[in-house]
Design a protein around this nucleic acid. Structure first.
Lengths: 195, 195
DNA sequence: GTCTATAATTCGATAGAC
DNA sequence: GTCTATCGAATTATAGAC
């Protein structure tokens, strides 16, 4: 699909790989901070230190750049070995640690921000959910319970991401990580394993 | 502040009030469906059946139109009379009924959609939260508990609004209203009143 | 009070020189 | 492989006729 560089690729194409990576990194930051509509190819190119036309050369158009930026691996943990009673807390803690690190760079939050106002990003969100989040929950909860509970678990975890890292609601940003973990883990547990 | 129309206002200015209201209604629908960036003054004017320049005449610019469209009254219910044990379910049911009616017209979802990618809308969201949502929870939970729990309760409820009505995640839209109420009410209860 | 016409920007995308 | 120059389209906003 991509062009062959089989001959004399030792010192060639290295420059293009670097700029391509720089473009992708800048694009993710812009899409994360501003969403799809407000990020301009010009701004991405400026951040990457190259000319706007290079973005077009490598990615065709803005929509395809967006697609490339959203091809992400959430690197969700394997939940199969976690005891049932610790599952909810493990989930909450995982996303908290992940997001507390660098929210602006987190692939899931990037996608979330854009998916709210962009149909294409929303469709991609559905794909990511089906391909990565749902299987992780299915492995942990079992197939039949995951089918009924995965949606509400996701709603709570994404609700945390939304209010704390995207909206930055003071009532949520004012809480410590421990307060959130202690407060939300029992709630997620209540969804996973109703009394 | 506004101009006086004290003399001969009987049959005057009625036309302008109607168009102004029509503009506001069209603006809310567009902002709700597409967010701030993608809604154009032209589209709002077209929906309202008037000329784009009229929008400028009445609201100055796009940002001020947005402001006017976001001046909303959430009409939250009075929760003071609700028994403590029924509070969580009452909250979940209220927002479910509210959103199931016409999600595209709900002021809170309109605001939420825009607030994710627009700083101005996010600031307005903070105001609405402080002025309307927080007091309702404070009346129900009491001041000291509301201060620690209002954020997480909001995260749960907005998480539902986000995943079901904005993102339309199949895992959440596939649930019935009753399934959500039965699944989420205990979770909200777990946040409000930890065991 | 409403509309026409248009100015002034901004942006996505293309063509082509080096 | 990178950049200059520019086109064409869409949009906000203004000026002014009726």
């Amino acid at each position: 699909m991509t062009q062959n560089s089989q001959t004399a690729d030792t010192a060639h194409d290295r420059r293009s790989d670097r700029t391509k990576a720089a473009i992708l990194r800048a694009a993710r930051e812009r899409f994360a901070a501003q969403g799809y509509e407000r990020t301009t190819i010009r701004a991405v190119a400026s951040d990457a230190g190259i000319d706007p036309s290079m973005v077009m050369r490598y990615f065709g158009n803005k929509a395809q750049l967006f697609d490339a930026a959203l091809s992400i691996d959430l690197r969700l943990p394997d939940l199969t070995g976690v005891p049932a009673g610790e599952l909810a807390r493990t989930l909450v803690r995982h996303f908290l640690r992940r997001w507390e690190g660098d929210p602006a760079d987190d692939a899931l939050l990037v996608l979330l921000r854009s998916a709210v106002t962009n149909e294409h990003a929303a469709a991609r969100m559905h794909e990511i959910f089906a391909a990565q989040i749902a299987p992780a929950l299915r492995a942990a909860l079992g197939p039949e319970r995951a089918a009924r509970r995965a949606g509400l678990v996701s709603a709570q975890l994404l609700g945390l991401g939304l209010t704390r890292y995207l909206l930055r609601l003071p009532a949520v940003t004012g809480l410590t990580v421990d307060e959130i973990e202690d407060g939300l883990a029992p709630a997620v547990e209540a969804v996973i394993d109703p009394k």
